[in-house]
Computed example of a mutant assay.
Amino acid sequence: MAEARRAAVLGSPIAHSLSPVLHRAAYRELGLGHWSYDRFEVDEAALPAFVDGLDASWAGLSLTMPLKRAVIPLLDEVTVTAASVEAVNTVVFTADGRRVGDNTDIPGMIAAMRERGVEKVESAAVLGAGATASSALAALSLVCTGPVTAYVRSAIRAQEMRGWGERLGVDVRTADWAEAARAFDAPLVIATTPAGTTDALAAAVPDAPGTLFDVLYDPWPTPVATAWAAHGGAVVGGLDLLVHQAVLQVEQMTGRAPAPLSAMREAGERALGAR
């Protein structure tokens, strides 16, 4: 009988996470009955002790907020992708005991957009300026050939986004959140804000919109996503991102590829439908 292998998602809050549903679906499809995937409520203060307490049965960790930057000092190696945005959402424990941090959100975003036919755009808009927004800029560095306008709430956030743009090689321009409805004129709009933040903008969706990438998955669809689809625009949702980044995590942690994208997506849709 194969030795038990473990993985989990950590964060705070964590009860809402769909990661266990997606990873367990992958294990079933891949015939990995000796693998388990759990969730643990862990904040920044508790993270070092948690990681240090893991034994050799552990294959990897998924990390959500507020741990994506807090974990970096605990790692032996960080990939170029993760270092580019100073955010790690995946930790793999190697056979020789090393801790390697990666960021699957960025390639997951690119894969989710490609699935909806978005390969290249001449310009884009980003709503918000948090950690997900910096990952969005990293993805746009490979997708957008022209300027990206970030709509933010403060001068400090604007400065941060321009700084990320310089670091990632993206021509980032910033605008005040009061002008956020103008974002919808861009061929690609990535909304990275918390639930409810963009609801008031739904009435501003134009008659012939481009592509909306809204990173939320619960509640779904958002009012903006609903209006976008009603006007004939393409919509990429948070579940698309979650599944694509989880596919990459499963492949890295288990060493099995390709991970079962369709089975994972179906499991996520069922879980969301039951909420």
Rank of each mutant, 00 (worst) to 15 (best):
2 A>W: 06
3 E>N: 15
9 V>Q: 07
12 S>E: 15
15 A>V: 10
29 E>Y: 00
31 G>S: 11
33 G>E: 15
38 D>M: 09
42 V>T: 04
47 L>I: 03
49 A>F: 08
66 P>M: 08
66 P>W: 10
68 K>D: 07
68 K>G: 11
72 I>G: 13
81 T>F: 09
88 V>S: 07
89 N>K: 08
93 F>C: 10
94 T>H: 04
94 T>Y: 02
99 R>E: 11
100 V>S: 01
101 G>L: 09
101 G>T: 10
108 G>H: 07
122 E>F: 00
125 A>S: 15
125 A>N: 09
127 L>P: 15
130 G>Y: 07
136 A>T: 15
139 A>T: 13
147 P>K: 09
150 A>M: 10
154 S>Y: 14
160 E>Y: 05
163 G>F: 00
170 V>N: 09
174 T>P: 05
175 A>W: 08
181 A>F: 00
183 A>E: 02
183 A>M: 09
185 D>P: 01
191 A>C: 15
199 D>P: 11
199 D>L: 07
204 A>K: 04
205 V>I: 13
206 P>Q: 01
206 P>V: 03
215 V>P: 02
218 D>T: 05
218 D>N: 15
220 W>T: 05
220 W>R: 07
225 A>E: 06
230 A>K: 11
231 H>I: 03
236 V>F: 01
236 V>S: 11
241 L>S: 03
241 L>Y: 02
244 H>V: 00
246 A>I: 00
258 P>T: 01
258 P>L: 04
260 P>E: 00
261 L>W: 10
263 A>W: 00
264 M>N: 03
266 E>Q: 14
266 E>P: 00
273 G>F: 04
273 G>V: 10
273 G>C: 08
273 G>E: 14
